[in-house]
Design a protein around this nucleic acid. Structure first.
Lengths: 233, 233
DNA sequence: TAAAATACGGTACGCAGTACCGCTCGTGAG
DNA sequence: CTCACGAGCGGTACTGCGTACCGTATTTTA
């Protein structure tokens, strides 16, 4: 007859009632009553009705912030890709709880919006990190940081949702693959000190119209040249 | 002594009070009183306190949906880039109102979250459009659609926020440039029927490590080859 | 053992949003 | 002219979230 801590009992009661009646049909009084506690106690453990569903978003965000702060990766994008994996692992760690939450956010617009707002905070964190890391205050670099952050988050969400829907058996491998895709979108400028990073000649044939390729090539070449001083022929 | 319509008076009163006391310090009773109307009338014109700030997000979303539905562009990404420009133009059209809203969303977390949720709806619309357009149900294509939609939205937001902050004098030109950046990230597969789209040989020199380039090149070549049957050497 | 910290319950309040009812103008049909 | 009807507005009352404050019991620490 041991008593689980109040916080746990409240969460259990809440999810049970959400499953039975739905989120909006459940009041906080209902939850407290089912948990055998007072209404005041609920708010002592959770700031709002929504927070019982997203209990540790703040904590996770801080975790990611620390991870980035102490990160020592070769490029900003790799550091962010690495950090975002922590988020995925956190969800996977929650297991069934994450799936129940997904079921709720799929049905209740208010919860979906809340989830989206949380994700946006990660994206903002990433964007600021990348921008700081690049140290380049130009408008072009700023846009690039924005695109990078958005892509990483989108890739993560894509894999996460697949896993939440039960469409993925190995989400960690998938997120690695997805991050490779993102890294491929944003080729890293070469570090000049790196040995073996000399001039390289690449030739390939393609059926694509040259115009379709040009912007990508120009971008690659420009960024390589900016760092190493090679000439574009 | 002409009387503006109630809806307008309510909006004016609301923004005036938000400026004076802040959003959270203003109650709906305050707004109705200042407008010389009853509280009931407020809710007859606006579903919530937030909606007086975002009055026509739904309408704009439908506008974009229609635009996409009747779009006849060469690629999905171009169609979406075109549609997203409508959003930017809408904001620019609002002029000072958009800037006042931005000032509010910058300060009030609840409003920022709401704004983000609205943006996410555009992104979802774009993602679905792109996925449908590609018609390719593979996981890779799905991720690609996700990345495209996220990038277009991120680029738009970037330009929009610059304009809202008064950092941009020609946002339309900027969004066009930003969209070119996004298009460059996702090279379009060549249409085989297009004349002049034969085999092209490209050679260039770069200071980058070949490994850094390889994923990008592979992606370009694969997609070109898939369509036109050229061989990669 | 006294005091202080911790955890819980209860009451009361402010405000958002909903439901419902009643009033007053038009405006057009008979 | 009058009656009916619909549109726009106001008022009252209610539910429910979230906050503030106070009182009480149990445990911990000095």
């Amino acid at each position: 007859m041991s008593k689980p801590p109040a916080r746990t009992r409240l969460a259990d009661a809440a999810f049970a009632l959400f499953d039975e009646r739905g989120y909006e049909q459940t009041t906080i009084d209902d939850i407290a009553e089912r948990a055998g506690l007072g209404r005041t106690t609920f708010f002592r453990h959770y700031r709002s009705k929504e927070e019982v569903i997203f209990p540790d978003h703040d904590r996770l965000l801080e975790l990611i912030r620390d991870r980035l702060a102490t990160s020592s990766h070769s490029t900003a994008l790799v550091a962010v890709s690495d950090a975002v994996r922590l988020v995925l692992l956190h969800y996977i760690d929650e297991g069934d709880l994450a799936r129940r939450r997904y079921a709720l956010t799929s049905k209740v617009a208010a919860l979906r919006d809340r989830e989206i707002a949380s994700v946006a905070r990660y994206q903002r964190l990433f964007r600021e990190f990348i921008a700081d890391w690049m140290g380049d205050p130009t408008e072009s670099a700023s846009l690039r940081a924005e695109l990078m952050a958005a892509s990483v988050v989108a890739a993560h969400n894509h894999v996460l949702r697949r896993w939440l829907r039960g469409e993925s058996t190995d989400p960690v491998a998938e997120v690695d693959e997805a991050m490779r895709e993102v890294l491929a979108l944003f080729p890293a400028p070469a570090s000049p000190s790196e040995p073996g990073a000399g001039t390289t000649i690449v030739a390939f044939r393609t059926g694509q119209n040259i115009d379709a390729l040009l912007p990508s090539l120009r971008r690659l070449v420009e960024e390589g040249a900016k760092q190493s001083g090679t000439r574009v022929t």
